[in-house]
Nucleic acid binder design. Structure first.
Ligand SMILES: [Zn+2]
Ligand SMILES: [Zn+2]
Ligand SMILES: [Zn+2]
Ligand SMILES: [Zn+2]
Lengths: 152, 152
DNA sequence: ACAAATATGTTATAATATAACATTAATATT
DNA sequence: AATATTAATGTTATATTATAACATATTTGT
């Protein structure tokens, strides 16, 4: 299977998962939202909002910043994508059905992201919160560095 | 000791630590840098770059965005302050001499920050990096929520 | 058919950050 | 001390990221 074919199937799979999840939760995955999600999955790494806007404009020339940001908000709120806070960038979620505290390995060289889940993180968040009488709401955990491929 | 007095002493202590650290490392804590650091420590919570710029302008009306961002860069690079990526905000470092992987409890209500260090985080970063053949470089770990004081 | 809620369109602007180049100040070299 | 080199600051302009506010269209519930 070629690299392009693989990307296509990853994207198709993500779209199917998104549709299923919206179906279950009574959310509307409109044409616009589906288009944007598809654009997000089209590249292997992360994407920037205005790059996405440029792509969307090719399909719908009337698209403007609020178009993209509103759509991103919907996708984030419903766990279909994530925002990488340290990069102001966005990435499709690899397992939208089962979300604990996730974190990201971000390659500075190739822009690829590894999305990870670990109970250890949940434990650290829980214990540090307890120690500080803190009620956690949103966790941001991002590790930037160099990936396996880029080491050579 | 009043709240204001306490803040003053926290700020003075931070300034002394910063001076000591720059002395040790041969860094120049210029007048501008010291002024900005003082402004950062003046409020108990986090600060935004342009708010800082407004404050600085009261002292030096010729200050402009690059003035503040360059100074913030210096202070970040040398571990005297941190940037909170999820807020685009800045905060003085509470222990600039001994920096492992630190993380932050951010209160959404009162903007106060708790800076924490934990070996558990180092361990999670180390083990997940090893598992993924990833060389970590910069860690962002921020927990937003509600602090003890704001719970009532 | 109508009202209400949701989604999208549109204009304008706010908030965050950096590039590029000029000048000044500090440090090192002769 | 004069000169070269580097580091810091000043200055103008612009890039990047994001939202407010209001208008219109579409969907959903009654
Ligand atoms: Zn995810
Ligand atoms: Zn890579
Ligand atoms: Zn610190
Ligand atoms: Zn609080």
């Amino acid at each position: 299977m070629s690299k392009r074919q693989k990307n296509l199937s990853v994207s198709a799979e993500a779209l199917r998962k998104a549709e299923a999840l919206c179906e279950i939760n009574g959310l509307k995955l409109t044409k616009l939202r589906k288009q944007v999600l598809k654009l997000i999955w089209r590249k292997p790494g992360y994407v920037k909002a205005y790059d996405l806007l440029d792509e969307l404009k090719k399909i719908d020339p009337s698209a403007k910043p609020p178009t993209i940001y509103r759509t991103l908000d919907f996708l984030i709120e419903n766990g279909l994508i994530h925002k990488l806070q340290s990069l102001n960038a966005f990435i499709g979620c690899h397992h939208p059905h089962e979300h604990n505290e996730c974190y990201f390995l971000i390659c500075d060289s190739c822009q690829k992201i590894e999305e990870c889940c670990s109970k250890k993180i949940n434990n650290v968040v829980a214990s540090t919160s307890k120690n500080n009488n803190f009620i956690p709401n949103k966790v941001t955990f991002e590790i930037a560095g160099t990936c396996q491929n880029c080491l050579n």
